[in-house]
Design a protein around this nucleic acid. Structure first.
Length: 486
DNA sequence: CGCAGGTTGAC
DNA sequence: TCAACCTGC
């Protein structure tokens, strides 16, 4: 009897635990299924970029399945109902899938599991998308979920490294689903009601493998060995570029860690080791936020620490629009937002600067920014995005120290984009502005502005807030909120 | 209980 | 130093 393998955010064949187990259990008679779910597609968070990327990954997955003699069965509807239909059409003995940890997914999967059990069918879910599952690591003394990243990561490594030794291969061959089993064509983006105005990366398992291999190719100028420093320079391609692949699972997280662990066994300089260690810690952040939200689901709707929900945001819609469009007058912020709007991606350092600016300088509710990023990013991930925004807002975790965390957009710009290369790439109005003015172009003498054809207020916006004043305003708003909610 | 530490900073 | 808190052992 065949077995259904239900693909969700794991659009690959290599080191896919549910697929591997399904193939073993059925001697290759796997029905590979992806269900387009309107509850996700139209939840107001999912945007054109992530949807486009997902559709392209489905095309690639279907292609790769065909190489193994199979094909992807695509359905569109409510997942439980679609699976019920598929089970009856295929007489499958059960459904296999990799676990997901957000409330919606848990509820959905629990209902599926319950129905399968009632029917006497197999329901097998697998630990796959994270290195350490949310229930897999608790504090020593009280067996409670961790709140502090530092404490979490200390004990994460050993468990994670163990997972990196547990890879499974892609099936070498699959039995084709019955030829009369219906499958929808993979839809075009427009058919789902999306209009993509951004460029998106090329995707698919083969490309994900290529990106991973390149990042770990020590002969390359910007490999993981330089990551610790290169990742802080938005003008350079010093990051792994794997966020979109980790979002939708075109690469396995275990394979990612395995590469790093293997590299650490080679002779490395302290700086090179630092690069690899830093990258591993980024993988730990992913697991950390997954377990933080799993155990504190209210943070999907508000601050982890509810005292921060008392902040009186200004929420000025004109300023929000200026931020969205990259018209704040702060070049590093505008470059970041324009990179996002054009490329459906923003360098992580700039995400932090831009988030801090929206929250602290404009005093706009971090959830507005969170939602905008979700809709624009091709790697949009509720967990990582929510965690990142809460971190920027200082509302996440007990080490929140808003007094320390008001980024100075000018100082950040000078530090991380000293020659303005990144700024000039995305803010062409400033292309000819000399280095000494590129971070704060409003300080240019008027004669120079006229000479360069870059008059502030005409060719490029004047800053919409004064950072010094905005900083004091934010400190007051935070102080007031924390005092009144005692 | 006491104590160390707290991703990414700014002034 | 800011200002002075919470986690986790």
């Amino acid at each position: 009897m065949p077995v259904i393998c239900w693909f969700r955010r794991d659009l690959r064949l290599t080191d896919h635990r549910a697929l591997y187990a399904a193939a073993e259990a059925s001697a290759g008679a796997v029905i590979p299924v992806f269900i387009l779910d309107d509850a996700i597609l139209h939840d107001g968070y999912v945007g054109a970029a992530l949807t486009a990327v997902t559709l392209a990954m489905l095309e690639a997955l279907n292609h790769d399945l065909q190489q193994l003699g199979s094909r992807l069965i695509v359905r569109h509807g409510q997942p439980l109902a679609e699976l019920q239909r598929l089970v009856s059409e295929t007489h499958a003995s059960g459904v296999y899938w990799n676990r997901d940890y957000l409330p919606y997914a848990i509820k959905r999967d629990t209902a599926v599991k319950q129905w399968l059990r009632e029917q006497g069918l197999q329901a097998h879910s697998f630990h796959d998308s994270v290195l350490v599952e949310p229930e897999g690591l608790k504090t020593k003394t009280e067996q409670k979920p961790y709140l502090v990243y530092g404490s979490y990561v200390k004990r994460w490594s050993e468990l994670a490294y163990h997972q990196a030794e547990q890879l499974v291969p892609a099936p070498s061959k699959l039995v084709a689903p019955p030829s009369d089993l219906a499958s929808l064509p993979i839809p075009a983006l427009a058919d789902l009601g999306f209009d993509l105005q951004q460029t998106i990366p090329q995707v698919g398992e083969a490309l994900a493998q290529q990106r991973l291999a390149q990042f770990f190719d020590r002969r390359r100028e910007l490999s993981v060995l330089k990551y610790a420093e290169a990742r802080e320079v938005p003008a350079e391609a010093g990051t792994s570029q794997l966020s979109v692949d980790l979002r939708m699972g075109t690469i396995s997280i275990r394979q990612c860690l395995k590469q790093a662990v293997d590299l650490l066994t080679e002779p490395l300089t302290a700086e090179q080791r630092q690069g690899v260690d830093t990258w591993i810690k980024e993988l730990a952040w992913r697991d950390y936020y997954t377990q933080l939200i799993y155990h504190n689901p209210h943070m999907l709707n508000g601050s982890l620490d509810p005292r921060y929900d008392q902040i009186e945001w200004r929420n000025d819609p004109t300023e929000f629009a200026a931020w969205q469009q990259g018209q704040t007058g702060y070049p590093i912020v505008d470059a970041g937002q324009r990179q996002l709007n054009q490329m459906a991606w923003m360098h992580n350092r700039v995400r932090m600067i831009s988030a801090s600016f929206l929250i602290k300088d404009l005093l706009i509710d971090w959830r507005w920014g969170e939602r905008y990023f979700m809709r624009k990013l091709c790697d949009a991930d509720i967990t990582a995005n929510n965690g990142g925004w809460q971190w920027a807002a200082g509302s996440s975790g007990p080490s929140a120290q808003p007094y320390f965390r008001i980024f100075n957009p000018i100082a950040q710009s000078k530090k991380h984009d000293p020659h303005g290369q990144y700024i000039r790439r995305f803010v062409p109005e400033l292309a000819n502005v000399p280095d000494r003015y590129i971070h704060e172009p409003w300080t240019m003498p008027p004669a120079l502005q006229a000479h360069l054809g870059c008059v502030i207020g005409r060719d490029y916006p004047a800053p919409i807030v004064d950072h010094g004043l905005a900083r004091e305003r934010a400190l007051n708003a935070y102080r007031t909120a924390l005092q009144t909610s005692e």
